[in-house]
């Protein structure tokens, strides 16, 4: 059974239809890389999965919960679906550990002591044990993004959504974030990534989704798709990147 099931989702911003009937199945342990030009609806699709955006028709099931459903507890949904953003969005008034501890203490009512242990574990996972007391302003972009990943992991999500998480980083900082994501993939975390890192999509991804004009235009195993793109649009997209 799919962990995330997206069926014929349509979404418009006013008169502009951004998603024109998108369907996608994501199984447990999949690493789905969504690529495509800006404006093709990648980020919007991702934001629909945890209910940050509403959609007009179709259905999304995430870990058995119907996204946007009348009887769905959106809070419950978001406990299972983590998200990491392009702009990190760390809370500037909290330390790295404070950022990681906030949701467990507030949402799960975890004790401070236990939350601190979770924070230590998650910061170690992203290689930032020594930065637990640093404030976001004292961290590099790559470090901030790794803290943001640790913060999401602290809720022990079933699936992690990554929205262009390396796009705001200096080139030399991209790899330290990608290494963390790759490690998560190896540990069996289900990941859905919107990304421009084609090599990463090819080497780490289990599924590749090419979006074009609000639809899934081409999909398959990354290595095969990249080696022999079928549609002219993807050929052009891959060719353009080189």
């Amino acid at each position: 059974m799919s962990l995330v099931s997206i069926r014929e989702v349509r979404k418009s911003f006013g008169p502009l239809e951004v998603l024109k009937g998108v369907s996608l199945e994501v199984a447990k342990g999949d690493v789905v890389a969504i690529i495509g030009r800006s404006g093709s609806g990648k980020s919007t699709l991702l934001r629909c999965i945890n209910g940050l955006e509403t959609f007009q028709s179709g259905a999304i099931l995430a870990d058995g919960l119907e996204v946007g459903g009348m009887h769905t507890d959106v809070r419950e949904l978001r406990r299972h679906v983590g998200m990491v953003f392009q702009q990190f969005n760390l809370f500037p008034h909290l330390t790295a550990a404070g950022n990681v501890m906030l949701a467990p203490t507030v949402v799960n009512k975890t004790s401070k002591k236990e939350a601190a242990e979770i924070a230590a574990e998650m910061l170690a996972k992203v290689g930032l044990s020594d930065k637990r007391d640093a404030y976001p302003s004292q961290l590099s972009g790559g470090q901030q993004q790794r803290v943001a990943i640790a913060r999401s992991l602290a809720m022990r999500p079933k699936v992690l959504l990554c929205d262009e998480i390396t796009s705001a980083l200096d080139p030399e900082l991209v790899n330290e974030v990608l290494r963390v994501v790759e490690q998560l993939a190896k540990e069996g975390m289900t990941l859905i990534l919107v990304t421009h890192e084609m090599r990463f999509a090819r080497d780490v991804g289990t599924n590749l989704v090419f979006m074009h004009h609000g639809k899934v235009h081409e999909t398959g195993v990354p290595k095969e798709v990249f080696a022999a793109p079928k549609t002219p649009e993807l050929q052009q997209f891959v060719g353009g990147i080189g």
């Binding site: 940050l52 953003f85 809370f91």
Partner: peptide
Amino acid sequence: PKGHIEAGVSLAM
């Protein structure tokens, strides 16, 4: 920043 609010609600707050 709106992103901080989105990050918060994405953490199930």
